[in-house]
Design a protein around this nucleic acid. Structure first.
Lengths: 142, 142
DNA sequence: TATATTTCATTAGCCAGCTAATGGTTTTCA
DNA sequence: TGAAAACCATTAGCTGGCTAATGAAATATA
């Protein structure tokens, strides 16, 4: 039995380091890791509603709303009421958001963080993480 | 060179799922994932100062202080001024903290979350995570 | 058609991570 | 020995996750 007791701690540690580093790198653009993530997703799904975007990003709508509000205040995104549904609001990247190069920046940062790691090991790690996610979902039956 | 773009997202997702599930499981004890972690560490390092404990847990002292305050208010830990240094405060598990079975509970939850995962793959995943952590540290030179 | 249910956005409020700044001790060293 | 530097705990305040609850709009249903 006695499964490895440290992978959870490694996870916690990596997350904290990653957020800290990423935040530091994008601070000068007026962004954070989470807000950059919104922009990256919007670049792929422009014009989505808040709920749909939250689902794609796997965070809760109230969490996303705060990012949206902040990004809109800083001019990175624009919100409009949806034409076909009075409840929905759809979100678009602004010109500033589109030109912000956040996508490229995130990609290069990702490459830096993953450098010198064997591709097969990386794939294994991703599989393990997804298996952990599946296990948790099964435990919580969501 | 287009490294796998999804491992970061897998990380984020696992962390969110884990925290949500863990929090739900220990809520009835009046705990959270982070506070349970303090108790687990204290079981190994009873009588540590706040700064030292924060270093061991790899979180910042102000973050730890809040957990300590909450745990002390709920009777899980006790704080005393250190005898040898007027600045330090040392932290001990209380009887309630010692009897709370948090250690065993965390271990079993960890086993549940990692079930059916190949031990070698798990080791590889941990290695990859530690390598990522090392890469970030190098980038940020800490 | 009228009501009931669902869905969407939003607000309020919690917990947990962080940095910056402060005050009190201790240590260092000139 | 006396001043400077370092260290510890603490406070204040930011961001980002979450749940619960609410009101408005759309959909389903009786």
């Amino acid at each position: 039995m006695s499964t490895d007791p440290t992978i959870i701690d490694s996870l916690l540690q990596v997350m904290r380091l990653m957020r800290r580093h990423f935040d530091e790198c994008v601070r000068e653009m007026g962004l954070t890791m989470s807000r950059a993530r919104v922009i990256v997703e919007l670049a792929r799904h422009d014009g989505m509603s808040q709920n749909d975007l939250a689902r794609v990003m796997m965070i809760e709508p109230p969490t996303l709303k705060r990012q949206i509000d902040a990004l809109e205040a800083d001019g990175f995104v624009e919100c409009r009421p949806a034409e076909d549904d009075g409840r929905k609001k759809v979100i678009f990247l602004s010109e500033k958001g589109r030109q912000s190069k956040v996508n490229e920046f995130s990609q290069s940062l990702r490459d830096d963080v993953l450098q010198d790691i064997d591709a097969a090991d990386l794939a294994t790690a991703r599989q393990v993480l997804d298996q952990i996610a599946a296990n948790i979902r099964k435990l919580a039956d969501r």
